[in-house]
Design a protein around this nucleic acid. Structure first.
Lengths: 341, 341
DNA sequence: TTGTAAGCGTTATCAG
DNA sequence: CTGATAACGCTTACAA
């Protein structure tokens, strides 16, 4: 590896001059600039970003902490963030929590130790109103953008949230309008604000339509395909009389639909299954369920905007993005005689 | 941010002693160790990894360059790599090529400038036997593990390849055994070795079965859902007489199946559609196509193994992982009278 | 077991 | 416009 010093010696100028040339500093004569540039290219000199960061106190590193890459939602967000980050000259350093607080804490510590200039975090939601590592984060003063809803333990940071309550309510309303009277709800992990909001939206729509609020229609599912399938098995064993199933999450819906079909149920003929998520799973994979469209690529872009403001010294902002809307008319109406008995 | 110097002053010892304690250097007395440790915790001292790397000439950074996060295959690979990387004390720095050589080059340059200790690269395949940036990579001496097949321009690096020719041949053979006599093939981008191998496997199986090799059965598709759909539209307009469709890639198959179904074709009743890929798309999303199972989570693990060897100064190795096997008996047999006419 | 000196590769600062 | 000098925060190498 060629160093600045060597290049300077070869060019017959001081290291500072070379340094200025490499950074496109304006105050260098055109002659020296060209001389140094061509020599740099010839010798294959590549400035060491880490060393630069040590002195300038900017690492040019943005941390990105998500639950898991295998969740398509996260993949989209990363795509968007990566794109602008590189345009702005930042590199991305990545870690996954797998929704475990221990991994989350370890990852955040590593990133702090790397002195990242900023941090995108999809938090692992817990019931406790406080989390030590988030306090450290705040104390360190690192710009943080929460990807998702703020919870008490991360309420002081900038965040991009989605309007899940209203979106979920709209889904349920639509199902009711189509004619469903008994709608099962597969909830997400209620420690997570998004899951709570979606459940509340469902409840409100049911209540406002004057339909009975039946706890027997509510099933706790997690946030994965497997958990959706497990909940579906419990669901299938009860006589709920439901003609529709609304899941708090795309993956739950997929798992549930697949499991129910394995049981011989026809979806959506016997039971309308509606997912609710951030990407158009249904647009890519032909599953017999309806997904709610949500403008989600914008989540990454919005997060990056907030980050830029933070990097410019502006105070934390919270942006609440519009939730999903039922855009597909394909939600199946109940068939005469259909329903889970 | 607390610095080493400050902590040393507070503890009444030299910076070296503190440095040793933080690195768990054995030659420190238990007393000093404890004193420094507790003080470090109390003052919130976090060693600066970048500064450490500057001196020790190890950044503890591994670069990861893939086509796009939104491809589920990549997500799996990353999951595996991330896991072990962190165990070994490395952080991951991420970039996506979107299969564009300009982005690939820019990303690799950034990573070189960061002085990553190693590099995982899913190359953008091109026809040219040489690529400048890969030569620079070789000259820089950075340990590189190619994720996928080596092409001429990256033949000198370590790599994890998959046995695609044999796997693809097995798929076609299976289709033939089930009774298909005219099998359409949707090829991938033939600049990519994996795509070529899969096409060759198909050809070989057809040839060895004594079936006619009909060019009219071969359609060029790319490697995305959209391209698969486009190819399907061309396919639907020709009278191929095919009763089965074998795609060189999962995503092609998904796009093709969806597009054909939109045309009113029943899949797999009228046409058996077989995907070929690295993950069990079909296990997660119920699409009317058959996927080939391939032991793919191991790709990430294998790549990490090779990387460790390189980091230990051992010479580049190439590992060829077993290809997919037809494990689902659900490949549909041709129906009497079925076929694309 | 602990400390001192020097340096990793770059840039901030100030002087010319 | 250019250069000398001193850092940035840590570790290597050597000495005590």
């Amino acid at each position: 590896m060629v160093r600045l010093k060597e290049l300077a010696a070869a060019a017959g100028v001081s290291v500072m001059t070379v340094s200025r040339v490499m950074r496109d500093h304006p105050q260098v004569s055109a002659v020296t600039r060209e001389k140094v540039r061509s020599l740099a290219a010839q010798m294959g000199y590549v400035p060491d970003i880490s060393a630069r960061g040590l002195r300038s106190r900017k690492t040019g590193l943005l941390g990105l902490l998500i639950s898991a890459m295998t969740n398509p939602v996260n993949a989209r967000v990363i795509l968007a963030i990566e794109e602008t980050a590189h345009e702005l000259g930042y590199d991305l350093i990545l870690a996954q929590t797998l929704n475990r607080t221990d991994r989350e804490e370890a990852a955040l510590r590593r990133m702090l130790a790397r002195r990242v200039d900023g941090l995108f975090v999809a938090p692992v939601y817990r019931m406790e109103p406080e989390a030590k590592i988030y306090e450290e984060l705040a104390k360190a003063g690192t710009p943080v953008v929460i990807l998702g809803h703020r919870a008490p333990f991360c309420a002081s940071f900038a965040a991009v949230e989605t309007e899940d309550r209203g979106a979920s309510e709209a889904v349920t309303k639509h199902l009711i309008e189509v004619g469903h009277k008994r709608i099962a709800f597969f909830s997400g992990p209620l420690t997570a604000p998004w899951a709570r909001e979606r459940f509340e939206g469902y409840q409100r729509a049911v209540r406002e339509a004057g339909l009975p609020q039946d706890d027997a229609l509510v099933f706790k599912a997690g946030s994965t395909i497997e958990e959706g399938a497990a909940a579906a098995l419990r669901f299938a064993q009860e006589n709920t009389g439901a003609t529709a199933l609304q899941a708090a999450h795309d993956l739950i819906a997929i798992g549930a639909a697949n499991a129910l079909m394995d049981q011989g149920l026809r979806v959506p003929e016997d039971l309308s299954v509606t997912g609710f998520g951030n990407i158009q799973t249904a647009e890519y994979f032909r599953t017999p369920l309806t997904t709610v469209r949500q403008p989600k690529l914008r989540l990454g872009a919005a997060a990056m905007e907030l980050m830029q403001k933070l990097l410019n010294g502006q105070p934390p902002e919270v942006r609440r993005l519009p939730g999903g809307l039922v855009q597909r008319a394909s939600v199946a109406a109940p068939r005469p005689g259909a329903g889970m008995e």
